[in-house]
Design a protein around this nucleic acid. Structure first.
Lengths: 354, 354
DNA sequence: CTGAAAGCGCTTACAG
DNA sequence: CTGAAAGCGCTTACAG
């Protein structure tokens, strides 16, 4: 069992053929066991980082694994473990604003791990999200799932995942229950930052285009903004407060109303970038200069912020980092929430000091 | 061999308990076989739509499957088949413009099937895409993969997938080899449409912001646009042709140059929406009205088109439908390319008749 | 048309 | 610390 180390210099890829293995097929745990002169169980222990392996044995097996380029088959492990090596991103396909960022955090968090990212979009208009998700989890047995907002607002989700024994984290604006699975997006404090920012610029007559009451993120943004404004001694006049659905069209109507007001606001905060884009458009249509005559702030710091003219000042939300931490929590030990930055106002060109 | 998931009528979910099954655990093929009084192999045949089952037997088993809410375990099937029930979307994480649309087509194409979408983003700046992809395919054994542009431009991809025995389709602007796996995005004809459109509006002095020569899509868009203009008797003056990297910043510089020209173009076609946004910005900065003084067309009809002011006229590329057809090709029989619409100019507010 | 056996590549539970 | 046996839930290959 003193190893007859197969001279395998250079080409150690999974394709390479070593004695005792069938050509063309990737190595299996049996190949490694045979070549290392141990049982497959011992190889399994090495793979799974069990402490119950003699240091010397471990090193020999590890070296072999590295040389051969052996990678345990996730499908076989999945069957044996009773759970796949997948982390699911579950979202509402009718509300995908945050998906690109979350996905980026997820995919890069998974890079180099044994896990892969699997997608499940529920069409909340045509199917019941809960049973769709139940079916997905039962069927794919993901190692863990991330519930993206606003899907994550569904209160039943925690119990469902619990019942199915599936690790999960809900990314959401406010906690819906006492479960520890929530990671908060800090929409409230992000919106509060905007209040501070606009006041510091000298604005007092401030307009607000709120998101839909039905969404937790919108409620949080509204509360954070209005409360902080109140703290600074600023009230948003009733006629300067409209609400929309985070979307462009409704916000365009609302913005037009605000801007047509004889004593129109000197600054407008829109609770989403898409709505802020609508403010820009309304202003342009009415011949009102931004930021010359009215300042505009959005929320999300999405890709469009820098593409608009003027480039949009917006709240950067650390969604990507949050997704990264969610992954750590799901596949590793703990998440380090200190690694997640706070939301902050990213200044571009759409605001000016009064 | 694609199979529909049994519907889930009433509460016959996988939780429900039937005689002869262990409570709490989903039913297995053995449960169904026992209850139906047949061998598991026969159940397997029913699941896999084999013709070698007596009509009557089939119906009995199918009814039972439906009643119990049995869903074959994809992990077990994956191990037995030697391939997972996953369809991979492979992309370059440094060039994700088209991913949202492709992903949407993929996810909705997969809905209701036994397959799920798995993501693999290669960071082309930090790793070799080919070996990253090889590793992914060997490890996950996806049922099929979709190579998204511009990753799909890599010529080695076809041979790689072939070698690994992995079904694949490459979504790309121009064929890189003779393989039948390519689905063309018709960038050339889309750009040609723009030429027709601008000429029909009376424009003759036309500017063009091309994409990077290194990308097939950019080469196709340039060729399609310039050729069709030529056919219409219009030449783009050298000083009205700049190229950028599809991105905002470089395009902003190029657009500024074009617009400062004493005999500046009356219309500008930018080969991407992001670059068109830069044209809008340059025009605004220079005090040039769009579409009053210059018309602008983008490419991609991406989410930002309608958010810009003025709303951007852009080429709609049927990426979502293409991804849907790619899925059909991968998991079903054939793709129906006739179901994919041709690229067309979506008129918004950024162009005017001369 | 149907089934009993063996196997996919790994793990758990049990012994030593 | 190590291993032989049984099993995860399905399929293929072979018989009938």
């Amino acid at each position: 069992m003193s190893m007859d180390q197969p001279a395998n210099p250079g080409d150690n890829s999974a394709r390479s053929i070593a004695p005792g293995r069938r050509p063309g097929k990737p190595a299996t745990i049996n190949d490694i066991a045979r070549m290392a002169g141990v049982s497959k169980k011992t190889v399994s222990r090495v793979i799974n980082r069990s402490q119950l392996v003699q240091q010397q044995t471990r090193e020999r097996v590890e070296a072999l694994i590295r040389d051969i380029g052996y990678v345990p088959d996730p499908m076989a492990r999945a069957l044996a473990f009773g759970k796949s090596f997948l982390v699911g991103l579950l979202y509402d396909s009718n509300a995908m604003q945050d998906i690109p960022l979350l996905q980026e955090g997820l995919v890069s968090g998974l890079r180099g791990s044994a896990f892969a990212a699997v997608l499940h979009g529920c069409d909340s208009r045509r199917e019941d999200p809960i049973s769709s998700i139940r079916q997905f989890i039962i069927q794919r047995r993901p190692h863990g799932v991330i519930f993206a907002p606003p899907l994550s607002d569904l209160p039943e989700l925690g119990a469902l995942a619990e019942e199915l024994g599936c690790r999960h984290v809900r990314i959401q604006a406010e906690p819906v229950d006492a479960s520890s699975s929530a990671m908060l997006t800090q929409d409230r404090s992000g919106a509060a930052e905007v209040a501070d920012y606009l006041v510091s610029l000298g604005h007092r007559r401030i307009g607000f285009i709120a998101g839909p009451e039905s969404l937790a993120s919108a409620r949080e943004r509204s509360a954070g903004f209005l409360e902080r404004l109140g703290l600074r001694g600023v009230q948003v006049a009733d006629e300067h407060l409209v609400s929309a659905d985070y979307g462009f069209d409704a916000a365009l109507r609302g913005a037009t109303r605000l801007l047509r007001d004889p004593s129109r606001p000197s600054a407008i905060f829109a609770a989403s970038d898409e709505m802020a884009a609508a403010v820009l458009k309304a202003a342009r249509t009415l011949g009102i200069d931004v930021p010359g005559e009215v300042s505009v702030v959005g929320f999300g710091d999405s890709a469009i912020s820098r593409l608009l003219s003027p480039a949009l000042t917006s709240v950067h939300s650390p969604l990507c980092e949050i997704a990264g931490q969610a992954v750590s929590m799901l596949i590793g030990g703990e998440a380090d929430m200190d690694a997640v930055s706070s939301p902050r106002v990213v200044e571009r060109e759409s605001c000016r000091r009064l």
